Simulated scan of single mutants.
Amino acid sequence: MAKIQQALASGRYDAAGQIASMKLGMSSMHGDQMEQEVRYMPPGMRELGASLHKQAGEFAVAAQDAAATEDAYKPVMLFGQMMQACVACHAAYRLR
């Protein structure tokens, strides 16, 4: 998230969108490792994770639009929502 935030803050909207898409978007979810991790997640954690991955895709599109329009309102708003999903998940689910 820090790399996305840095790119967004410096006006590199294309880079922010690309990072979000590659690292957090739905396309980042693949392979045996993902299947193994999801298997042990409680349903609420899976829901929060799926929400974050969906939001990352929406953010990536909004960031690409901002690269063309220079209007950063929507990607900044969506980035805030992504952060809320992260905070909610990390607050609710911890390894003990």
Score class of each variant (00 low, 15 high):
Met22Gly: 12
Val87Ile: 12
Leu95Ser: 13
Ala72Leu: 01
Gln84Asp: 07
Arg12Cys: 03
Glu47Tyr: 07
Asp65Thr: 13
Glu35Gly: 03
Asp14Gly: 12
Tyr13Trp: 13
Ser27His: 07
Arg96Gly: 10
Ile4Thr: 03
Met34Cys: 02
Arg94Cys: 05
Ala91Asn: 06
Glu35Ala: 14
Pro42Met: 08
Asp71His: 03
Gln33Met: 14
Leu48Trp: 07
Glu58Val: 09
Ser51Phe: 04
Ala63Arg: 01
Ala56Arg: 06
Ala72Glu: 07
Asp32Val: 09
Lys54Ser: 09
Tyr73Lys: 10
Ser21Asn: 14
Ala9Tyr: 02
Ala7Ile: 00
Ile19Tyr: 10
Phe79Trp: 12
Ala67Asp: 04
Phe79Met: 06
Glu47Asp: 15
Ala88Asn: 03
Met26Ala: 13
Glu37Pro: 00
Ile4Leu: 03
Ala66Gln: 05
Met29Asn: 14
Ala16His: 08
Arg39Asn: 06
Gly31Glu: 07
Lys23Cys: 08
Gln81Met: 06
Arg12Pro: 05
Gly80Tyr: 02
Ser28Pro: 14
Glu35Ile: 03
Ile19Ala: 06
Arg12Asn: 15
His90Lys: 00
Thr69Lys: 04
Tyr40Gln: 11
Ala15His: 04
Met34Asp: 05
Gln33Tyr: 12
Asp32Asn: 14
Gln64Ser: 12
Gly11His: 08
Ala60Ile: 01
Ala16Lys: 04
Pro75Gly: 00
Leu95Val: 14
Ser10Asp: 09
Arg96Asn: 12
Met77Ser: 06
Arg39His: 10
Ala20Val: 04
Tyr93Phe: 15
Gln84Gly: 10
Glu35Asn: 11
Ala88Pro: 00
Lys74Ala: 06
Ser27Met: 14
Ala15Met: 09
Leu95Cys: 06
Gly57Ala: 05
Leu95Glu: 15
Thr69Tyr: 01
Lys74Cys: 00
Ser28Met: 11
Ser51Gly: 12
Gln81Lys: 13
Met82Tyr: 01
Ala63Leu: 01
Gly31Tyr: 05
Glu35Pro: 01
Ala9Thr: 08
Gln55Asp: 06
Met1Gln: 07
Gly11Ala: 08
Ser51Gln: 15
Met34Tyr: 13
Glu70Tyr: 04
Pro75Leu: 02
Leu95Trp: 07
Gly25Met: 10
Met83Tyr: 04
Ala56Asp: 05
Ala88His: 02
Leu78Cys: 04
Gln64Arg: 14
Gln64Pro: 00
Arg94Leu: 12
Asp14Trp: 10
Gly57Asn: 15
Asp65Lys: 13
Ala56Lys: 02
